[in-house]
Computed example of a mutant assay.
Amino acid sequence: MRRLTLLATTMLLLAAVPASAQSQPAQSGPGNNAVNSADQNNSNKPVAGRNSFTEGQAKSKIEDAGYSNVSSLKKDDQGVWRGKADKAGTKTDVSLDFQGNVNPAK
């Protein structure tokens, strides 16, 4: 009997919750993405922060942003991957921050 009462109470509570509260749509508003696509930067300079990209992932993200011959990648004390790469025939310093922002050195 107690089990039946618990089940009935649970069903009543579930029926009382509005359908809109059960499944929230994904937010598409402003946000600060942890990782950006290659064509979307949050900043024109590297943003310091805890970087979880491996060296291989960092190299791939930089290549996806249009660079080639990525070399000498090292993560600095700000969590930013820094190295050298070619773009449009020019060798340049390049960086990748924890948000996925790829920027040439300025």
Rank of each mutant, 00 (worst) to 15 (best):
A15T: 12
R50E: 13
E63H: 12
N33E: 08
G56C: 06
F53C: 01
A21E: 13
D77A: 15
N101S: 08
K84Y: 05
A58P: 09
S20R: 15
L7D: 00
G56H: 04
A15R: 03
N44Y: 06
P30N: 14
S43D: 13
R3F: 07
W81P: 04
S68G: 06
A21S: 12
N69P: 02
P25M: 05
V35H: 07
R2S: 05
V102L: 09
A88W: 01
R82S: 05
A85D: 05
N42F: 00
K45Q: 08
P18I: 10
D86W: 14
L6I: 15
E63F: 08
A34P: 02
K45S: 07
Q27F: 14
T92N: 07
G89H: 05
A21T: 01
A8F: 11
A15G: 06
W81G: 02
D97F: 09
W81Y: 14
L4Q: 11
N44S: 06
V35Q: 10
G89R: 08
S95W: 08
Q22C: 08
D64L: 06
T9K: 07
G66S: 09
Q27L: 06
A105R: 13
R2K: 10
A48S: 15
G79E: 03
L96W: 06
G29E: 07
A38S: 12
Q24M: 07
N32D: 12
R50F: 07
L12G: 03
K87C: 06
Y67S: 00
D86G: 09
F53S: 06
K84M: 13
S37T: 14
K84G: 02
L13P: 02
S43A: 15
A21D: 11
S95A: 15
K91F: 00
S28Q: 10
Q57K: 02
G89E: 00
K74W: 01
V47K: 01
P18G: 02
Y67G: 07
A34N: 05
D97K: 12
Q24K: 09
L73Y: 10
R2G: 10
S60W: 01
Q27H: 10
Q57V: 00
D39R: 14
R82P: 02
G31R: 15
V94A: 08
M1C: 03
V102G: 03
K75G: 04
A85G: 02
N103G: 05
T9G: 11
L14Q: 11
T9S: 13
Q57P: 01
S71T: 15
T54Q: 07
K84Q: 15
K87T: 09
F98R: 14
D93L: 12
S20G: 04
A26Q: 08
I62L: 02
A15K: 03
D39K: 13
L12A: 15
V47H: 00
A19Y: 07
S60F: 00
G29R: 12
A105I: 02
K84I: 14
Q22H: 04
A21H: 10
A105G: 15
L7F: 13
S68Y: 05
P18V: 13
I62Y: 03
K106A: 12
A85Q: 04
D86V: 12
M11Q: 07
S23I: 10
G66F: 08
G31F: 11
D97R: 11
G66M: 14
Q57W: 01
G66L: 14
P30G: 14
T54W: 02
D86R: 08
Q24T: 14
E63M: 13
S71F: 04
V102Q: 03
P104M: 08
T92M: 13
G31H: 10
L14K: 11
